[in-house]
């Protein structure tokens, strides 16, 4: 028991919560009083054994930086904002979780699918690679051509946004990543 608490406390980063509350959307983290409304109303928690928003909030409050940022369940939030609307303490739960994803992403912990979306974006302006057949079909459906994308301007606007580091390790194979199941 004693050993266990030592090994846990060595993984606690007491400054973590202050990092979170400085990020836009994370401000209210410390207001959470662990009522559990977010988890009980969360559609993902209903079907997932490992996804619990209340627990994620608690882990962030406690400073379990490594544990929360390296978890794969963090990415399961569907961003439906039910929790944000219903939290009695005004915690923007979905945004706190997004802050945590952003922190994980900054450390290079990014599920492949997001790399694929980003890589499509900087090449085409769209997050999906829209197949030639679809673009052709627009004509036969009587639809106008797709709006123009200013790729150069887009990429200029994204300077300083760590695009290269987000994309590290994106594989060409990843392009076939299933985007919609």
């Amino acid at each position: 028991m004693a050993e266990e608490s030592i090994s846990i406390s060595s993984k606690i980063d007491p400054k973590f919560r202050y990092e979170v509350i400085r990020m836009p959307g994370g401000e209210k983290l410390l207001q959470c009083f662990q009522c559990g409304t977010c988890t009980s109303d969360c559609p993902v928690a209903r079907f997932s054994d490992k996804y619990r928003p209340r627990k994620i909030i608690r882990m962030a409050q406690l400073g379990l930086r490594e544990k929360v940022l390296s978890s794969d369940f963090l990415w399961l939030c569907a961003s439906c904002f039910t929790c944000t609307d219903r939290c009695p303490q005004g915690v923007e739960v979905a945004s706190v979780i997004r802050v945590l994803k952003n922190m994980a992403a900054a450390e290079g912990r990014i599920p492949e699918v997001f790399k694929v979306l980003l890589s499509n974006l900087i090449k085409t302006g769209y997050i999906y690679e829209i197949p030639e057949s679809r673009i052709k079909k627009r004509e036969s459906l009587g639809l106008p051509p797709l709006p123009k994308v200013n790729i150069e301007g887009l990429n200029k606007s994204l300077q300083g946004m760590s695009i290269e580091s987000f994309l590290k390790g994106v594989s060409e194979k990843g392009r076939e990543a299933k985007l919609w199941v």
Binding site: R98, A105, A106, F114, Y126, I127, S162
Partner: peptide
Amino acid sequence: NCCGLPLEPLS
């Protein structure tokens, strides 16, 4: 260009 929603989890 994309509105950015799908990439907000990154930044």
